[in-house]
Design a protein around this nucleic acid. Structure first.
Length: 475
RNA sequence: GGCCCCGUCGUCCAGUGGUCUAGGACGCCGGCCUUUCAAGCCGGAAACGCCAGUUCGAACCUGGUCGGGGCUGCCA
């Protein structure tokens, strides 16, 4: 059997990391088995669906490297992969289910139905026992699937094992709304059948709906897919991951300076492990050994601390040239303009030192903007902390003079000059260097000082120190 | 309430009856290094929810209990 899996994100919002993780596992499963990975868009929620979110979904998946073989934008034997384009097909299925006796029209008052449901619940009976006694429905209501009252639904979940749901725990559920739009259950199952999906790998929140999908598929005369329900992702408070836990959209991480490899890796270790106490691995490594059997059953907390650490690991593991390429847009963003080729050369010279220090690409720009601005902005906290100490003026004045005569103006010679300064003045290295650091970079946090000075150049270094001196005097 | 799922350090994982005085990672604490910040190195605290049972032996098997979560919509 050739594996065919799909993900079915809905376009009701920006793609969520939970959905992305499901996508990731589907992708790993498909690639490991040499199968087909399909992306379909669930846009049956007329109220909330918005095609604008499609770009977000598509570009997010591409960014992570989750390529798909069929689906929206790719085309394929089934034409389109947006459910809104297949409404006719769903209606046709709904009608044929009615004709075959698997479903029935139901135009009765929702409030009355709710009342009956509550009544049945109290008495421990199946709601259908009352609902079916109502007047024969007209033909313009919704269509409900008629759950056979006797048989239990059993299936083997690849992650969770044997599942059994008694028939009376499944209500007659709506498959076609009165406005003619199919519900998720119908559209999803019809698609899975039509597209020949072999394995449905999705979040555990859909585990309870699985009997409905199996019943539907059987009623359509098809073999249900094999199901595998992934553990849910929780926020730090142990509740279902949601907006209140900070960033839950993939886009937020992308814009937050995370590397796709790191996000991929991190998502992959949430609920799955490659084994042997190893947790840093590449996509090909994961593809090679991925199995659903190794997926864990318990929910995982989305711990951004660990993601941050992992991102730092990935940044440091990058080749320098690669790092420079990836950092470019972030530098441009921080500086506020593109750089000249000479300036890029300056950035390249100091890039390795920044690379070691960054956990996020967003940290790169702020660390180097001092090299590319005409007017330096001082971080007030740093200024207070460093420039209000004794004899800072003397140190700065001395430093300016010594740097004036350093030749050539390079890291080693600068270091020699400044260390001599510290020794001559009888002060510690920190006391001597920090004021200079703040003077030239505007902050007490920066790349290493001597390299920073060398990258800045003698002229600008000296004039910044003098500028700081003047600012000191005017305080 | 009903149905269903889950339960190893704060967090993510390893562990599938003896090799577990439970291993790794993040985070945390302490130290080293050090011109800041990082990184790096060394060390430390930290868990099998609980109770029975099966067994010579249980983190691993069974039952119960407690706890957490999901579903229970003409949302997905």
């Amino acid at each position: 059997m050739t594996v065919r899996v799909r993900i079915a994100p809905s376009d009701t919002g920006s793609i969520h990391v939970g959905n992305v993780r499901s996508a990731l596992f589907n992708w790993l499963f498909a690639r490991h088995n040499g199968g087909t990975f399909i992306v379909r868009i669930d846009d049956t929620d007329l109220e909330r669906s918005d095609p604008a979110h499609l770009d977000d979904i598509v570009s997010g998946l591409r960014w992570l490297g989750l390529d798909w073989d069929e689906g929206v934008e790719v085309g394929g034997p089934h034409g389109t992969y947006k459910q809104s384009d297949r409404f006719d097909r769903y209606r046709q299925v709904a009608m044929s289910l009615v004709e075959a006796g698997h479903a029935y029209f139901d135009d009765r008052d929702p409030d009355v139905l709710e009342g009956l449901r509550v009544k049945a619940q109290k008495e421990g009976k199946h709601p259908g026992t009352y609902i079916r006694r109502l007047d024969p429905p007209a033909t313009d209501g919704s269509i409900r699937f008629s759950v056979p009252p006797d048989a239990a639904v059993t299936f083997t979940d690849t992650v969770r094992g044997e599942m059994r749901f008694e028939a009376d725990s499944v209500d007659d559920f709506v498959i076609l709304r009165s406005n003619g739009v199919p519900t998720y259950h119908l559209a999803s199952t019809v698609d899975d059948v039509d597209y020949g999906i072999t394995h449905v790998i999705r979040g555990e929140d859909l585990l309870s709906s699985t009997p409905k999908h199996i019943l539907l598929a059987r009623a359509m005369g098809a073999d249900p897919a094999i199901y595998a329900h992934l553990p849910l992702l929780f926020g730090p408070d142990g509740k279902k991951l949601s907006k209140r836990h900070g960033d839950t959209s993939l886009a937020a991480y992308r814009q937050g300076g995370y590397l796709p490899e790191a996000v991929f890796n991190f998502l992959a270790i949430l609920g799955w492990s490659i084994g042997e106490d190893r947790e840093i691995f590449t996509a090909p490594d994961a593809v090679e050994v991925f199995t659903l059997e190794r997926v864990s059953k318990n929910p995982a907390v989305f711990d951004t601390d660990k993601l941050l650490w992992m991102n730092g690991e990935y940044i440091r593991a990058l080749g320098v040239d690669d790092f420079i390429e990836r950092a470019r847009p972030w530098v441009v963003d921080s500086v506020g303009r593109d750089l000249s080729s000479e300036e890029w050369a300056v950035f390249s010279s100091i890039a390795p030192l920044v690379q070691e220090r960054a956990k996020l690409l967003t940290e790169v720009g702020p660390q180097v903007t001092f090299l590319f601005v005409d007017v330096l902005e001082y971080d007030e906290g740093s200024w207070e902390k460093v420039m209000t100490k004794d004899d800072v003026g003397g140190v700065l004045d001395d430093a300016a003079q010594r740097l004036e005569s350093v030749a050539p103006f390079e890291t080693e010679t600068i270091e020699a000059a400044l260390r001599a300064l510290a020794e001559d003045r009888g002060i510690g290295a920190g006391k001597a260097f920090q004021p200079v650091r703040v003077a030239i970079t505007g902050s007490s946090i920066s790349p290493p000082l001597f390299e920073s000075l060398a990258a800045l150049g003698r002229e600008r270094s000296v004039s910044r120190i003098l500028g700081a001196l003047a600012r000191l005097g005017s305080d």
